[in-house]
C-alpha cells in the first residue's frame, strides 16, 4: 500500500470509529469489490455457495464493521493489516457457512477433518472437532488465535496457494481446506486417490518451505 493510500485509510478508520457514516460508506466502497472478488474465487469450488458471493461479502463486511467500530475489538492503528484482517474474517465466514451446509448433509454434527494425509506416509494423526488444520504441523484452534496470528497464518496460506502453479494441485488444496477427504476429492475431480495423495505430498513439501516448519 502506498503511503498516501495508507494515510487515507487510517483517516477513514479513525472517522468510522468516531461514528462517521460517510467514512463507513467510503470504506465499504473501498473494500467491497476487492473482497467480493476474493469470495467469488473462494466459492468457485463450492457449488452451493457459488451464487452467494454478494451476500457473503456483505455479511462479512458488516461483521467487520460491527467488531471494529462498535465492539472495538481490533487495533486499527496499523492500516496495512486491515485488508488481511478483513480477508480472514470473510474467508472464515465463508468456511463457516460451508461447514454448516456440510454438517447438514452429514446429519447435524459440525466437525472438521485434520489434514494428516498432507504429511508424509505414516505421519497420520487423528482430530477432535477443534478447528484444526494440520499440514503435518498443528495449527491452534482459530478461536484461541490472536488476530495478528490469524493474519500471519492466512498470509502463509496465501503464499502457499500462490506458490502452487498446477491448477489441479490448487483445487486439491482448496477442497482439502473445505474438509473433503482424499477419496471425496478424487470423486469430485474425477482423478485417482493416488493423484490426490501425490499432489498433497508435494504441497506438504511446499508448506514446509513456506512455513519453515519441519514435518
Amino acid at each position: 500500500m502506498r503511503p498516501e493510500e495508507s494515510e487515507k485509510l487510517q483517516h477513514l478508520l479513525r472517522a468510522a470509529s468516531n461514528g462517521d457514516t460517510a467514512a463507513h460508506d467510503a470504506l465499504w466502497v473501498m473494500f467491497y469489490p476487492k473482497l467480493k472478488a476474493a469470495v467469488r474465487y473462494k466459492v468457485a469450488s463450492m457449488p452451493k455457495l457459488a451464487n452467494d458471493a454478494s451476500d457473503l461479502t456483505s455479511e462479512a463486511l458488516q461483521s467487520f464493521f460491527r467488531r471494529a467500530f462498535v465492539d472495538q475489538e481490533f487495533d486499527l492503528n496499523c492500516p496495512n493489516s486491515v485488508w488481511q484482517l478483513l480477508k480472514l474474517i470473510t474467508m472464515r465466514h465463508v468456511n463457516d457457512v460451508f461447514k454448516g451446509i456440510k454438517a447438514e448433509k452429514r446429519g447435524g454434527a459440525i466437525a472438521t477433518f485434520s489434514f494428516e494425509s498432507l504429511g508424509k506416509d505414516g505421519n497420520s494423526g487423528g482430530s477432535s472437532c477443534d478447528s484444526s488444520v494440520d499440514f503435518g504441523v498443528t495449527v491452534p484452534d482459530s478461536k484461541q488465535l490472536e488476530p495478528s496470528d490469524e493474519v500471519e497464518w492466512s498470509d502463509l496460506l496465501d503464499r502457499l496457494l500462490a506458490s502452487i502453479e498446477d491448477p489441479t494441485a490448487k483445487q486439491i488444496l482448496l477442497l482439502r481446506l473445505e474438509h473433503y477427504s482424499n477419496s471425496e476429492i478424487a470423486d469430485r475431480l474425477q482423478i485417482s486417490i493416488r493423484t490426490v495423495q501425490r499432489h498433497l505430498n508435494v504441497i506438504a513439501g511446499l508448506w514446509q518451505t513456506e512455513s519453515g516448519e519441519t514435518l
Binding site: S192, R194, N201, V202, T209
Partner: peptide
Amino acid sequence: MTAADTTDGTVIEIL
C-alpha cells in the same frame, strides 16, 4: 511446482 520436486513432478505427470 518447484524444481526440487522433479520425482514427484514426473510421477504426477504420469498420474
